[in-house]
Design a protein around this nucleic acid. Structure first.
Lengths: 114, 114
DNA sequence: AACGAATATTCCTGTCAAGGAATATTTTAA
DNA sequence: TTAAAATATTCCTTGACAGGAATATTCGTT
């Protein structure tokens, strides 16, 4: 159980941790957009938009499609599926599992006596 | 649809973006642990373990319980539920939705003529 | 009260990432 | 071929953050 989620690239979290990138991702949720539109709607300068999109692209979160002058970016499903799969590891925690806290306390007591 | 996920504190992602903190979280998945054990099992120095745990605690990802000399940390379900809920916003993307790319291209064409 | 174990905190330093501004690149149109 | 639009890239500066080392704090034990 060393690599619990082989398909889950953990850098996905880092990429999504940046607020502007999260905004971009949520915006792209509504469908593919060009760099210019993304920058406009989010109040970003074009270079920063490009930079953030590059990070997202490097992480496989978005993909590009060249259309003449423009670059159309859109979301890729895989990272979100992987993230969802990773989250499932915590499902038993989320379900309010009765944790074995008392067992653990007993453990601590035993250690003390050794 | 301004605040898409009111319960979702987005700083959760930042907290989980750090590798050691992710390790801590996955370790705590197996049940509550003291600082010392966390540090031991992950090969961290105690101060760094404490610091990371503080970040996780500030973000509501873990909670502490004082037991004599030790502090027992354990996961809190809420952030994971919120994260899961946020991910659901992307479910249609994750399902490999047929995006309206052609519609968008048509839009771009129309703009060009105006 | 004093000591030791477990944990938290502080200070310092280096690294890295994000924004700003300018510029390079690519493509279309004239 | 030149100009203009759309996008990418570079350089620079600054702020945030993680680790290291030392120290403070808290609690039980004797």
């Amino acid at each position: 159980m060393s690599g619990k989620n082989p398909g889950m690239d953990m850098t996905t979290l880092s990429a999504l941790a940046e607020p502007n990138r999260r905004d971009i991702v949520e915006l792209l949720c509504g469908g593919p957009l060009t760099v210019g539109e993304i920058a406009d709607r989010l109040g970003l300068r074009q270079p920063q938009a490009s930079k953030h999109l590059k990070v997202l692209s490097d992480n496989g979160i978005v993909e590009v499609m060249a259309e003449a002058n423009r670059r159309i970016y859109k979301l890729r499903p895989e990272p979100f599926q992987a993230l969802d799969s990773w989250l499932k590891s915590f499902r038993h925690v989320m379900e309010g599992r009765i944790d074995n806290l008392e067992d653990y306390l007993r453990e601590l007591q035993n250690q003390k006596k050794s």
